[in-house]
Amino acid sequence: MMKSKIMAFRIKPVLLVLCVIASLAPSFAQKPTPHTSFKPGGEWLDTDGKHIDCHGGNIIYVDSLKTYYWYGEHRGQPRGASCYSSKDLYNWKNEGVVLDKGEIEIFERPKVVYDAAKQQYVMWFHYDGNRYTVAELGVATSDKPTGPFVVQHHERPNGHESRDIGMYLEPDTKKAYIGYAADHTNRTIRMVELSDDYLSTTTNDVDIEAHCEGPGILKKNGTYYLLTSGCSGWTPNPATYYTAKNILGPYTKQGNPFVGDAGNNSFNSQPCYIFKIPGYKDAYLYMGDRWNGGGRPDSQYVFLPITITEDGKMELHWYKEWDLSMFTPVKK
């Protein structure tokens, strides 16, 4: 009996040391190796080593903070809009859920624009209910890029159903436009101009007459390029782009811009936004989601450079890995 008590006494200090080491283990965990490039469709971890959960959104650059902010659907808990910040577009810090969807049944495709006059950030998003029958645009605002965003109102723009949305900000006039999949399960794309404070839609609202969704918009040499996906739910499909001399159209169908797309499915992705990267000449970033059959927290991203050729054609080529050195810096 005495022997067993002595052995027990000797073992307890060892267990105590092991417990202390275990409790300190997280503090010794190494940060993930910083990213120096884009790897489309691959594992993309934030600065904490966790999968980036930020889908169907957009990126803005806040010059006063010298920081990029990436907004998107947070598919984990709580559901809503997430925000990540970066200094280089490769490495992203999780800023948390900046809008908790609360009682909103379906919250999708948030797009953020900054109103310099009111010094506030305005988020537009697809607001919907069960079976996508509500089909509205929602609006939320925040005084900071990292939120929290507060929902202001939601409605059908000029009475039209609205689901997938894209956004374009005219750099010279600061006019903002939303392209939205509209009417009868996305029968067409409409383009609507926003008010000067970005808080409401105007009656400047036109039918592009294209049966598609997932719109992304860019402008080069006076021509607007509207990139869209087909309507096949969570399943990827071949993309189509349209061109126009006025953002409100009329638009001309041009074809599929994805070159060498063996699967004929936009490199297994769906467009959500086109970001013009500041500091570079004609640096257009395709932001695509790889949904893998459904919107899950671990869905991947396909970020690729967009080329507008000398004869005005849009092209996207696949790169297993690439970086911003592909673009030409603008001389200061």
Rank of each mutant, 00 (worst) to 15 (best):
F9H: 05
I11S: 10
L15F: 07
S23D: 04
P34L: 11
D46H: 10
G49K: 08
H51C: 02
I52V: 12
L65S: 08
E73R: 11
E73V: 09
G80Y: 01
K93T: 12
E95L: 07
G96D: 14
E108R: 10
K111C: 10
K111H: 15
W124D: 01
W124N: 00
N130C: 11
T133E: 10
S142I: 05
P148H: 09
V151R: 09
E161R: 05
R163F: 12
D164C: 12
L169A: 05
E170N: 15
P171F: 04
K175Y: 10
Y177K: 11
G179R: 04
A181N: 10
A182S: 13
M191N: 01
V192F: 03
D205S: 11
V206H: 05
I208N: 04
G222P: 05
G222Y: 10
T223I: 15
W234Y: 13
N237P: 01
A239H: 01
Y241K: 04
G249C: 09
T252A: 13
P257R: 01
V259H: 07
N265Y: 08
N268M: 00
S269A: 09
C272T: 12
I277Y: 10
K281L: 06
G288K: 00
P297T: 11
P305W: 01
I306C: 01
K313I: 02
W318G: 08
D323Q: 12
S325R: 10
